[in-house]
Design a protein around this nucleic acid. Structure first.
Lengths: 168, 168, 168, 168
DNA sequence: CATGAATGAGCCTTCATTCAT
DNA sequence: AATGAATGAAGGCTCATTCAT
């Protein structure tokens, strides 16, 4: 299928990749090269005033939108997650990726707590909750489940904020 | 693979199932026969006093534990979800199952709101949030991610409760 | 297929027939029990005056008509001929059947020659010609070829008659 | 079976043919590429003087002889006819082939009638008769029926000629 | 007589891979 | 750097047959 798509013969592909597994692996690496917490959450310009917006908008950035390339990333991530559920090798890699996002959320929430925007207890579980929700929301959109993604994400974000900071 | 596992030949499996598809379908039906919201959340004995505990414990019931059979359900659910991402037919079925849990959470939160235990705004997004978190938590456990599941779930449950009801 | 059709299970059939081959063989015997030259050509009442009609009508009798049972005979004969082209065993049997019809035609033409109705030279080739035409006509009808069967058969019959006897 | 015969493995056959059906179809096309009326009946050099010989010899050309390739054509035609009795698709193709021969005979007899060599009544049934006889004669030879093929064919040819033209 | 359950052999097909050129 | 041709292994499935009950 791939050979046909790229207009080559199968043996040609074997010239560039030792095996199917290598092709898959390198494809994953290529596809995920820009899938990082910082690519979605713009923490370089983070401030007390744009905090809530950064957190909220970062999540929306992670969800699939019109962008074809981003959609591909999520599509492949979904396939990758499948494989990871079966294959120890892929699992390790997936865990590393998840950990990065988890750390990202934890740091972000930490800063929010310092600024008094985020409730300072249980930062870790809160970070996990955010990560789990945004990850699963992505999957749901990919499967065309019918739910109000933005409302769910806003609700989740709000649930970690101190009362007076909640977005409307 | 299945034939080998059950110590039969392939043709004898075809005596019991017309096709691979039927085998798969009937297996899913069998495996999921007890995978219902009510099997995990004991709402028949629900009261104002055990509300938080019921909600919290119900989630824990959904997570994999020592029980081999429940583990199988989750393992198969995971494979089923994979298929559903590709196959329209399975997707529909998965959506029905998800919807049932979503409705379960919504009803439960509705009752909580009536009793003044749950914040009464945005019940729907809250229900989705709970469903998304518990579903993804399951997946994470299956993949042996290292996180404090109970803490995450407790945090999520707490986030929908009014202040003074929060579990400790 | 057969088991389903007769409302039995396959093993039941094996109680009555040792093998598929025996079932097939006995079915052929049963089906062909009335497929004889005399069943189509009524030579018992043959006379100088009904000779041409007997010959002509006999051929028509061999062709498929509304009669369901006769149709079955031809259908099965057709399958049998197929098998015979491959299988030595069936071939022998088919040759015996063909020979009977050949002899029938030869005797009939012989009588016609005695009565001065049929040209007396080359009786054998004439008999073969008649047999080949009527046999192939049957096959053509079974395959729903579009041709004027009666006209072809009448032409063939006429071609063996002396001038003044020809049917109109 | 084919793979074994040609000393290949089954998958390598699939490199050259997309499916079994394509293999069968292309084989038929290849085998029948020279099976046309004109290949047997040399009507390009047809004249009043060689008419009877052309008709007679053309029929003999259609019958199997020592030629291995021609034998194959008839062998495959026979299998093809079998399939055609069951399969609509092949039937259509067979009918087209038959029609070509029928038309060939009709044209040939038409010319013969113009020249006063062939009896001019019922040209169509006569053409059919010739086609049916030569076709069935082929089949009989393939099945090793014991009959004087040449005599039968000569008799059939003679039966369409006017008296004084008959071959000896 | 009949059936439920099973099986060896085989068929059509796909897939990952190799190898000579 | 690429290709034509091939292959072992396996997958989904059917068929004729058997055997214990």
């Amino acid at each position: 299928m791939i050979a046909k798509k790229v207009g080559m013969t199968k043996p040609s592909i074997y010239y560039h990749f030792a095996s199917k597994e290598e092709l898959v692996n390198r494809t994953y690496t290529h596809i995920f090269r820009a899938h990082h917490f910082n690519s979605y959450f713009h923490i370089d310009a983070l401030s007390k005033h744009n905090y809530v917006e950064t957190l909220y908008q970062g999540g929306l950035n992670m969800l699939p939108d019109g962008n074809q390339e981003h959609f591909s990333v999520l599509r492949v991530l979904s396939e990758f997650t499948m494989l990871a559920e079966r294959d120890e090798l892929y699992r390790e890699r997936l865990i590393r990726m998840q950990q990065e996002f988890l750390n990202g959320f934890r740091d972000l929430l930490g800063k929010g707590a310092d600024w008094g925007i985020v409730l300072s207890q249980n930062i870790d579980p809160k970070a996990h909750m955010l990560a789990l929700v945004i990850d699963n929301l992505s999957r749901c959109i990919m499967m065309k489940f019918d739910l109000d993604y933005e409302a769910v994400w806003k609700e989740t974000v709000n649930s970690v904020l101190v009362q007076e900071e909640k977005a409307k």
